[in-house]
Simulated scan of single mutants.
Amino acid sequence: MKYKKSEAKGYARENFRGVWAATATPFCDDLSLDEAGFRRNMRHWAQTLQLGGLFVCGKQGEFFSMSVAERKRTFELAVEEAAGHCGIVTSCSDTNLDVVLDLARHSQDIGADYIVVHSPVLHFHHDAEATVYEYYRHLSEQLDIGIALWNHPDCGYVMSPELCARIAELPNIVAIKYSVDRALYARLTELAGNKIIVSTASEEEWLDNIVELGWRLYLCSTPPFLLQTANDQRINEYTRLAFEGKTAEARQVRNSLEPARAAFRSARPSGTPQAYTKYWMELLGQVGGPVRRPLLNLTEAEKAATREAFARSGLAK
């Protein structure tokens, strides 16, 4: 590891910053892991797009349809390709705690910068706070690597800002991907912004959060590699301008991306987001490939609609 457990918060404060993207995992036609394709994508994201870091094997990466061995291998490939170019946070989320710890220890051993662990899946709960606190306290006790929390309403409950702030007291809890209403993440920033790096997945809110909340980390979703190309890196550009205090210029650049955002939203099917992401990646020249069950691939009609939307996005220039 690049830091001691006691140094995790300070290391993250200095290095866990900028635009981080959530990676997709390419599979071959026979649904095996496409290692060469993943390496190619990693080089594009880390070197051509010069992203601050990558969030590997999360929901966008279809971790739920991958074996533990495949997840570990994907971590290894990511760390190898990112070395010297960008940071890596590995998604160790799982319903089984032993798997979480196994993936986390592997991440420590191979030199990942941080791990991210989703709040636990709970059934029939009435008050999740004590359970969730103990879950993260145990992880913090068992591990040395910096841990990012991850919570959103899809899991059945929302962690309160007060609970997040309490967990933030733990020594190697460094960040949170808090996909909730702005009032909640603004409250957590106020409560514990000096102890935990707060972020949310929405690219459209990123600039306002830099300006109004003083944020320095976008963690993270797919727009950094779906709305940027080798010759068009406006997310990176408006981020840089905002960090430099050039707010008016940053807003101009951010707003100029709206046609691309609108085009992307216009054809996205409600039931196959990962397949849509992968096909859009292919239109950009990246490696996508099929999705694994239980997910569905795009129909030919959905692919045609995607191509039409992509043509309107202005990203093909």
Rank of each mutant, 00 (worst) to 15 (best):
R292S: 03
P259D: 10
E76T: 15
I115T: 01
D29E: 15
D127W: 06
E203A: 09
E141R: 11
Y178S: 05
E308M: 09
V198M: 08
T23P: 00
I147E: 00
E141N: 12
I196P: 14
L163S: 09
Q228H: 12
L191C: 09
G288C: 06
I210D: 00
H106F: 12
I173S: 04
F75D: 06
T95R: 03
T299R: 13
R265V: 02
L227E: 00
Y11H: 09
V116R: 03
A309L: 03
N209Q: 14
D98C: 05
R216P: 06
G111I: 05
T272Y: 03
T131C: 09
I173C: 04
H126F: 12
W280R: 04
A311N: 02
V117M: 07
L184D: 13
V19P: 11
L315P: 00
L219I: 04
C28S: 09
A250R: 05
S67L: 03
N255Y: 12
I167L: 01
R73D: 11
A83E: 14
V253P: 08
E81M: 09
I145F: 10
L54Q: 10
R40C: 12
G10K: 15
D34W: 05
Y185K: 08
S202T: 06
P26A: 08
S199M: 12
K72V: 09
D98A: 12
L217Q: 08
G111W: 07
A130E: 03
R105C: 09
N151V: 00
G156E: 05
L33S: 02
E212C: 11
E141F: 15
V116Y: 06
A305I: 03
R268S: 07
I235E: 07
A305N: 09
L103F: 04
A250V: 05
K195V: 04
G285Q: 06
V89G: 02
G271D: 14
G87K: 15
F124G: 01
A260W: 04
N151A: 14
A46K: 12
K177H: 06
Y11F: 15
R240M: 06
V68R: 11
T222Y: 13
A130Y: 02
S32V: 00
A201I: 01
A148M: 14
A8S: 15
Q60K: 09
A263V: 03
R13F: 08
D29C: 04
R312K: 15
N41H: 07
R39P: 01
F38K: 11
Q252P: 10
V291W: 03
L54R: 14
G288I: 11
V68T: 15
A12W: 07
M159G: 07
R268F: 01
Q274F: 10
V211S: 04
E282M: 08
T25Y: 08
Y185F: 15
F124N: 11
H126G: 13
L143K: 02
V180N: 05
L33R: 08
R312S: 01
F243Y: 07
D144L: 03
